[in-house]
């Protein structure tokens, strides 16, 4: 049997795995930031900028922002599809919110670029 999947299909298993895989990375980033604030007695501009000028921290931060985008794409879809019954309004809200999530990633990219 040949199955031709030529459309952009939603995959529940992929959503399930993506939600958790991204959550783990966001958690580790947050725990690292908590540790940074707890272990740094006085956070000055030099220390703060120095943290994000390291390549590994740029990668970690950017990866977290991409994870947030994937995470909210699934999470907001779940919430919107439960509470906003009007299809046009739901699609519009989803479009705007996904755009905002993408903007977060781009802001992160350009800020990290300049640090």
């Amino acid at each position: 049997m040949v199955i031709n999947q030529a459309s952009l299909k939603r995959d529940g298993v992929q959503d399930w795995v993506s939600l958790r895989a991204t959550a783990v990375i966001i958690t580790f980033f947050s725990l690292y930031m908590v540790w940074f604030f707890v272990s740094t007695p006085q956070v000055t501009f030099e220390i703060w900028q120095g943290l994000f000028s390291a390549l590994w921290m740029k990668v970690f931060t950017f990866a977290t922002l991409v994870c947030i985008m994937i995470h909210v794409r699934i999470g907001l879809w779940q919430v919107l599809s439960d509470y906003v019954k009007n299809a046009r309004l739901r699609v519009l809200l989803q479009y705007l919110m996904n755009l905002l999530a993408f903007a977060y990633v781009l802001v992160g990219l350009f800020v990290l670029w300049g640090v």
């Binding site: 907001l76 977060y104 640090v115």
Partner: peptide, 20 residues
Amino acid sequence: GVALFFALIFVIWAWAVSVS
């Protein structure tokens, strides 16, 4: 979850301005 999504506007703004 929804609150955090919108709170990120403030978080990312504060981060972007403070680190620049």
